Computed example of a mutant assay.
Amino acid sequence: MAKVTPNASAIKVLVVDDEPQIVRTLRINLSARGYKVITAGTGAAALLASGKHPDVVILDLGLPDMDGIDVIVGLRRWTSVPVIVLSARTDAADKVKALDAGADDYVTKPFGMDELLARLRSAVRRGGGDASDPVVVTASFTVDLVAKKVTKKGETVRLTPTEWAMLDMLVRNSGKLVGRKELLREVWGPSHETASHYLRAYLAGLRRKLEDDPSHPRHLITESGMGYRFEE
């Protein structure tokens, strides 16, 4: 999929956290790499600062005035800006709740700066990507979203309608963590939001058909307790 990655100097990052040391660390590391950094220490300040049109938001959930989930909901009322949650909450339920509210990624504290920067670059690529490009090419297979066709080594791969629906949603959210409930709701409907065994079974089938090594998937990734991610 054709994508455009802006120069770091043109990328505006909104950091929302009430821990001064975290804010200072992020400001120093991001500024050193050419990013423009805006900061906010409360949820209300974050929603106000979002009017400055950041390219990506790094958001803590434990804010003094409101829960970070409410900030995500507030952002999603008017913007699709990528949101990376950076939180000390490690419970799977908190992660799923954030993703279902509209977060694009979830990183737990303490975090590695290199990993966070990689996830930031990925979020920026998605935000600046050319979503009109219907063909996604990976090292293992090619997906044509318009023709609803998958090829591997020059041969058409036959997918069931359900397998295609899963793959289509994951590919259209390339690089983004898709929550289990979100995927179940989209593919099977609202009445199946707890039927996670469907996901495991159908994803295993997709991996057998598409991955070069299904036991060590490169493109159809499971994020334990959270959801799934498609990586090119």
Results as ranks from 00 to 15, higher is better:
residue 29 N to P: 04
residue 48 L to Y: 09
residue 36 K to E: 10
residue 66 M to I: 05
residue 76 R to G: 04
residue 227 G to K: 00
residue 73 V to F: 07
residue 212 D to W: 01
residue 219 H to F: 08
residue 32 A to T: 08
residue 50 S to P: 01
residue 98 A to G: 14
residue 19 E to C: 10
residue 4 V to L: 15
residue 126 R to K: 10
residue 14 L to A: 05
residue 46 A to T: 09
residue 47 L to S: 08
residue 5 T to Y: 11
residue 56 V to N: 09
residue 101 A to Q: 06
residue 186 E to C: 03
residue 136 V to C: 12
residue 17 D to M: 11
residue 174 S to Q: 13
residue 27 R to L: 06
residue 70 D to Y: 04
residue 44 A to L: 14
residue 32 A to Y: 06
residue 232 E to F: 04
residue 4 V to E: 12
residue 203 L to H: 02
residue 73 V to M: 11
residue 170 L to M: 13
residue 2 A to P: 05
residue 13 V to C: 09
residue 196 S to W: 03
residue 26 L to R: 04
residue 186 E to Y: 07
residue 180 R to G: 01
residue 47 L to Y: 10
residue 139 A to R: 13
residue 75 L to W: 08
residue 39 T to C: 11
residue 44 A to Y: 07
residue 101 A to G: 07
residue 72 I to K: 04
residue 95 K to I: 15
residue 102 G to W: 09
residue 83 V to K: 01
residue 229 R to T: 09
residue 40 A to S: 13
residue 76 R to P: 02
residue 145 L to C: 05
residue 20 P to N: 01
residue 104 D to F: 12
residue 87 S to P: 00
residue 23 V to E: 08
residue 165 A to S: 11
residue 189 G to I: 15
residue 48 L to R: 13
residue 171 V to L: 11
residue 152 K to F: 03
residue 204 A to Y: 11
residue 24 R to L: 13
residue 207 R to D: 04
residue 156 T to R: 13
residue 88 A to Y: 08
residue 7 N to E: 12
residue 23 V to P: 02
residue 67 D to I: 01
residue 49 A to R: 08
residue 82 P to L: 10
residue 172 R to F: 01
residue 65 D to P: 06
residue 208 R to E: 13
residue 15 V to K: 04
residue 30 L to P: 00
residue 83 V to T: 05
residue 227 G to D: 01
residue 13 V to Q: 05
residue 94 D to M: 03
residue 231 E to M: 09
residue 183 L to R: 00
residue 73 V to A: 12
residue 20 P to I: 02
residue 192 H to W: 10
residue 70 D to V: 02
residue 211 E to N: 07
residue 222 T to H: 00
residue 117 L to M: 13
residue 36 K to R: 14
residue 135 V to F: 12
residue 54 P to Y: 08
residue 197 H to E: 14
residue 152 K to V: 04
residue 112 G to S: 13
residue 136 V to Q: 07
residue 111 F to D: 02
residue 59 L to E: 06
residue 52 K to L: 14
residue 207 R to A: 09
residue 138 T to W: 05
residue 79 T to H: 09
residue 74 G to P: 02
residue 164 W to Y: 06
residue 194 T to M: 10
residue 97 K to A: 15
residue 141 F to G: 07
residue 13 V to A: 08
residue 143 V to G: 03
residue 64 P to L: 10
residue 72 I to R: 03
residue 2 A to I: 15
residue 99 L to T: 03
residue 180 R to D: 03
residue 171 V to P: 00
residue 89 R to P: 00
residue 41 G to A: 14
residue 2 A to N: 13
residue 79 T to D: 11
residue 172 R to Q: 11
residue 128 G to Q: 04
residue 23 V to L: 14
residue 159 L to W: 00
residue 3 K to R: 14
residue 43 G to R: 02
residue 114 D to V: 14
residue 168 D to N: 11
residue 130 D to L: 14
